[in-house]
């Protein structure tokens, strides 16, 4: 009787662990298949010349989309990084725990707002009401709203991890909170803050829905104009050119996805390296 029960429990454990391993394998297999599909098709269709030609006709190149993506990311990070980093400093260093809780919570709520709703908001408000037209600025601000919560949250949590003793030491030297933050506390948190900004860039790179109705689409290289000029971006090519009935259009879509994936992969590796380095330092 006892023996049977023990056996049953053992078998149950075996089944449990097998299912768990299978589940992990399924996740890894799906990821591998996706990465393989994009890499294989991407390598087959990607040409270096695509980096220096603009999209035209049924295919062409990616230059306009790459530069446009870059411009949108730079614009949005110029707005989102100061807002997020300074906001994170406030939440961690200045705010009372109640206010910090409220801001933290609402920031997380903002990160839960569907990106298409942010795009719709951008269209109604910036493109139409403020009359900016489809433009880099409208797209950049839509991306800002998406990036901001990540930067603020990672900044805040990196600062929170700095030991209280360091703050007390700084205050004890007669520093104001401002001086303490800018001279002492930011140093150990810098790695964390940088990963937050980088991850926000990776997220911004991959967004489509908020840009469809704010940035528009252009087959020309972006000008520096902030408003009234449409701007191209990589995800648009993936989305629209895979729908076309030509092989060369599909090749362009695969190439765009390939470039995107490579850049995002690179950012993730850099983030890992930073995390590893700061972990070693501690």
């Amino acid at each position: 009787m006892m023996k049977q029960r023990r056996k049953r429990r053992k078998v149950g454990g075996c089944i449990g662990w097998t299912v768990a391993w299978l589940a992990a394998a399924l996740v890894l297999f799906s990821l591998a298949d996706m990465v393989y599909t994009i890499l294989w098709n991407g390598i087959k269709s990607f040409r270096i010349s695509m980096l220096f030609t603009i999209t035209s006709g049924n295919a062409g190149g990616l230059e306009n989309a790459i530069l446009g993506t870059l411009y949108l990311i730079v614009l949005s990070i110029i707005i989102a990084a100061p807002l997020g980093i300074l906001g994170g400093i406030y939440v961690s260093e200045f705010a009372s725990s109640r206010i910090a809780g409220v801001i933290r919570f609402l920031t997380e709520v903002l990160s839960g707002v569907p990106s298409i709703v942010i795009g719709y908001f951008g269209y109604l408000f910036m493109v139409l009401r403020w009359g900016w037209g489809f433009s880099a600025l409208a797209g950049g601000i839509a991306l800002t709203i998406i990036m901001l919560p990540y930067i603020l949250r990672t900044t805040e949590s990196s600062l929170m991890q700095v030991p209280m003793a360091q703050r007390e030491a700084a205050w004890g030297l007669g520093m104001t909170r401002f001086q303490a933050v800018t001279k002492v506390i930011w140093r150990p948190a810098a790695g964390g803050i940088a990963t937050g900004v980088l991850l926000a860039v990776a997220i911004g790179l991959g967004e489509t829905a908020p840009l469809l109705y704010t940035a528009g689409w252009s087959t020309y290289n972006p000008s520096l104009a902030l408003t009234h000029h449409q701007i191209g971006y990589l995800t648009y090519i993936v989305w629209s050119y895979i729908d076309m009935p030509y092989t060369e259009s599909h090749a362009l879509a695969y190439s765009a996805a390939f470039v995107l994936l490579m850049v995002i992969l690179f950012i993730h590796l850099v983030v890992r390296a930073i995390v590893q380095r700061t972990m070693v330092k501690h």
Binding site: L67, L70, A81, P82
Partner: peptide
């Protein structure tokens, strides 16, 4: 901040340099 900003500005200038070239 100024380093990041100038890096960003540099990128955008380079980015648009090609546009201007065209």
């Amino acid at each position: 901040i100024s380093v990041t900003a100038s890096a960003a500005a540099l990128i955008s200038v380079v980015g648009c340099g090609t546009g201007a070239g065209n």
